[in-house]
């Protein structure tokens, strides 16, 4: 670094420096300030947008719970249009898909789910669920084969059990019963790893209907003399049957 002998020299040097670099310094400061305020403004705008979207979404949920499906549908469309970048828009689309499925309009349901897939981040919950539901809708629309491909090749993320339930259903539609049973079995064991209790009565009944047994064998000639009842049979009360003496 240079050394200055007197104050005048220092001032002189500063002046010179300012003449050379002054303009670009001012520009730099203005640009920096501009960027800063711009960023803040952008954040504010996003926050404001999020809050309005939240308000509309909350209203939509309220309408759904009071059975005003048509108003809810209109509001959901509006959320998708106005706040398309927010998660609320994706939630709204998921609900539109649900309403469409309930009405039997599978084409609309598919479009809504694809809309979510087009916007959701990779690996997000909405993306994984939209994918799962898309497969189920495709299966219902008559393309179980494609559904199966999606279900088996996609990454289920957190939703492994739900994916297995859907896989089982599709396999059952394709009459591949043994594979369906395996899928249901793995769904049950995956579901039980979570801490919360899930009532899987429907799944269990499906599983039961896939694991049917022949009736117990009875050969009275061999057992007529003494107390002998075939023990390997499925009996609800097997435990209360006393051992032989």
């Amino acid at each position: 670094m240079e050394q200055y002998r007197t104050e005048e020299e220092q001032v002189e040097a500063l002046k010179k420096w300012w003449e050379e670099n002054g303009r670009s310094t001012i520009v730099a400061v203005i640009v920096a300030l501009g960027l800063g305020f711009g960023w803040q403004g952008w954040q504010k705008y996003q926050e404001g947008e999020g809050e309005s979207a939240s308000m509309s979404y909350q209203n939509m949920v309220q309408m759904l719970s009071t059975g005003e499906a048509e108003s809810a549908r209109a509001l959901a469309e509006e959320i998708k249009l106005e706040y398309s970048r927010t998660t609320y828009a994706q939630f709204a689309a998921l609900h539109l898909a649900r309403l469409a499925v309930t009405d039997g309009d599978l084409a609309t349901a598919e479009a809504e789910l694809r809309w979510v897939l087009g916007r959701a981040d990779k690996g997000s919950d909405t993306m994984q669920l939209a994918q799962l539901r898309l497969a189920r809708v495709l299966a219902a629309a008559g393309d179980p084969q494609q559904a199966l491909t999606i279900l088996q090749s996609a990454d289920p993320g957190s939703y492994a059990a739900a994916y297995q339930v859907a896989t089982g259903d599709v396999l059952l539609m394709l009459e591949r019963d043994d594979e369906a049973r395996a899928a249901y079995d793995s769904a049950l064991s995956l579901a039980s790893r979570a801490e919360g209790q899930v009532n899987m009565a429907v799944l269990q009944q499906k599983l039961q209907s896939l694991s049917q047994v022949p009736p117990r064998e009875i050969d009275i000639a061999a057992s007529a003399g003494e107390s002998e009842a075939a023990p390997e049979a499925p009996s609800a009360d097997a435990d209360t049957v006393p051992g032989e003496e």
Partner: peptide, 13 residues
């Protein structure tokens, strides 16, 4: 059943 399962897996995830 799907709803419950998903809620549960979401939390677990």
């Amino acid at each position: 059943e799907y709803g419950q399962l998903i809620d549960n897996e979401y939390r677990q995830g």
